[in-house]
């Protein structure tokens, strides 16, 4: 069964992963921020070309969930 999740729920559940999001509800028109969506697929590897083409067509959105403790160039240590 497809479960709609909020963006915060998605971020907590899929850190460090690419997610294919369907039935996306954006926060506002034209915003890149997602309010909620259904996660159709999650993967550690990068998106397939088809996933990206679907995103270009508005069929889905492909988002990478950054792990909150990782900077672009390294790790934060305690």
């Amino acid at each position: 069964m497809e479960t709609r999740m909020t963006w915060d729920q998605i971020r907590k559940k899929y850190p460090g992963m690419w997610v294919r999001l369907e039935q996306v509800q954006w926060e506002t028109e034209g915003s890149p921020d997602i309010a909620s969506a259904v996660v159709a697929k999650s993967t550690k590897s990068r998106p397939t070309t088809q996933d990206l083409k679907d995103a270009m067509d508005g069929i889905c959105a492909m988002e990478y969930i950054e792990e909150s403790n990782i900077f672009h160039t390294g790790y934060i240590t305690a």
Partner: peptide, 8 residues
């Protein structure tokens, strides 16, 4: 930003 519908 978003371009081409849903690409970031």
């Amino acid at each position: 930003i978003r371009i081409y519908e849903n690409l970031s």
